[in-house]
Design a protein around this nucleic acid. Sequence first.
DNA 1: CAAAGTAGTCAACCAAGTTGTCTAACCTTA
DNA 2: TAAGGTTAGACAACTTGGTTGACTACTTTG
Lengths: 149, 149
Amino acid sequence: MEPVPMLLAMTYRAMGDQFHDRLRQIGLEPLRPAHGYVFRFLKEKRATTVDIGQHLGVTKQAAAKIVNELDDWGYVLREPHPTDKRAQYVTLTTKGRDYLKFADNLWSDLEGEMAEAIGEDTLATIRQGLAAYLQHVHGEDQPGLRPVW
Amino acid sequence: MEPVPMLLAMTYRAMGDQFHDRLRQIGLEPLRPAHGYVFRFLKEKRATTVDIGQHLGVTKQAAAKIVNELDDWGYVLREPHPTDKRAQYVTLTTKGRDYLKFADNLWSDLEGEMAEAIGEDTLATIRQGLAAYLQHVHGEDQPGLRPVW
DNA sequence: CAAAGTAGTCAACCAAGTTGTCTAACCTTA
DNA sequence: TAAGGTTAGACAACTTGGTTGACTACTTTG
């Protein structure tokens, strides 16, 4: 019997692969999951590189590398922090927001296909079950994503 | 609303972290998920390094590195292939089988805790739902694990 | 106002994979 | 049965995505 985590990993992988395939057909830059997570984070709040690193669960140096790429590609830009002369806010450009919207559509397409395959209600149960488990493990303050890729 | 894959990844990560923590308390070698997947594979069938690479979805060179570690630590050993003088079968030692048994217990403990947190039936639905989705996507021949770590 | 802490950058290193090459053995097949 | 193509495994160089450590400029706190 397969351990549950293996099922989780395989499903994550399967969905991620499909996402990536379709994305590549559009010929975008080679965005990795981390980039997507950054977009999602920046949509919510203004953040510095250090904040981003914290959220991703990596060092600020690693975060800086990611931010640099996104900057080079025009997905984000840096603007001076209003009160702290050391810091810079990283913000989404229009291109970044467009990407995010596009990606969200793609995700919900994939989720729709999943619902079709296994049933709307089953998917809902999965969603709620996993959320409840994370709640159970981490309580209120969910950690950064501590990603898996 | 969180995309489902993110929930999958976070749950996988949460369970994996707990697994790893408890394992480390016992002071075992720093086994990574890949090692566990190799054990699970070798329990089923005799396999060469190339087979293992195929199963893990990595090159044979990468697989060889993993097998070397496991050999150094005494979890597997290599024995000559009966008919092919180039090849070697990789097989679990007693230490390897003991580890696997231990790990399986640990996993089912964790799964038990999950069941307690979110309900036996919810967990069962998750299990079946994910399996059905994988079936839907990949059909009969599930790919190697194409792992995520 | 001095001391401790923090944002960001630079540089060196590391781990886990990749590609490419080679040898010895294997498998056609003419 | 010899010849040509394929394969298992090893070795080496490189790539990627991170790490730790050190430093500067600025900020916060006692």
